[in-house]
Amino acid sequence: MMPAAQRADFAACSGCSLCLLVCPAWRRTRDLRDTPHGRAKALQHGVAVVELKESIESCTLCGACEPVCPENIDLVGMLLELRRQLPPMILTRNITTNMQAERPRENVTLSASTPALVAGGMYFGRPALLARIKTLLGSARGITVANDNGADIALALEIGATVPPQRIERFLAPLRAHKTIVLTDGLLLRQVRAWLPEARVAGLGEALGALAPLRRQLRAGDLYVIDPRAYHADHERLVTHYDGLRAETGCTLNLDLQRIAIPATARSLRQRLGADAIDDAPQLRWLLQGRTIARIVVESESDRFAIGQLCTLPVVHLAELADDPSSPEGKQS
């Protein structure tokens, strides 16, 4: 994908509406104002950012709109910038203050040739899963798990808080030693790729999905749920990766006809922050509608949790595939 600086901004929006077709927020409200198209047209007509607050906060940041935009507009970057321009919430102020005060946390770097894993908080809450991921990704040369997982930066990006440059530097300094960095957070991944252009930055799904032992566990009857944020951030390249995965394994992917990932959840900012009630059921119904599946395989732990709340089908994290008793190898073990 072209660097954000070289890409177009909202002024280039021609109003083609292609973003509506893939926008989970639009699917929820069927209201043009809640879409990139609606926001771009409003801004073209001189509407103040604060008047678009509801629309700006309705975005799920799944990034599906970017790969389909024929004008190549930096739609995610534009949305993040709009969130920064909104009057700050109390949380926004607090997180910026905390980031300025935070002390550095050193990684134990094995060597530059080992990959670094930046795992979100949910993975630290499931140590067995994290250990499994470490084993899978570090089987050849070991792996460095970042002590600083940048969770505050990810949250700051999401809510539109300013991230102090020194905080970014503290986060990036230990990562600079690694040629390969694997992140579980798709929004953070997008930023790290921009901050460290020389590094090979991959999402957890892509990194695990490249492992033959895991690919062998996938089969027809699996619905493989790609993490949308990571996928859409590098869609042009990853669409081939996942098409190969489908062809090789026969699994069904959560892709629509444009090969855009349908998110398992479609939560607005207010829902993510707990200010509004969460209702994942309509989005999950759309994900599953008309599909004959026996098992759901997810790349993201948060998707596993959300789907597991509402769905009676077995839901397995990609890293746990070999441990799944219904898998061929799982049965053997």
Binding site: S14, G38, A42, E51
Partner: peptide, 11 residues
């Protein structure tokens, strides 16, 4: 303006 402006022109 946000609502009306979105429909100010066609393709």
């Amino acid at each position: 303006l946000a609502a009306c402006g979105a429909f100010a022109t066609d393709a």
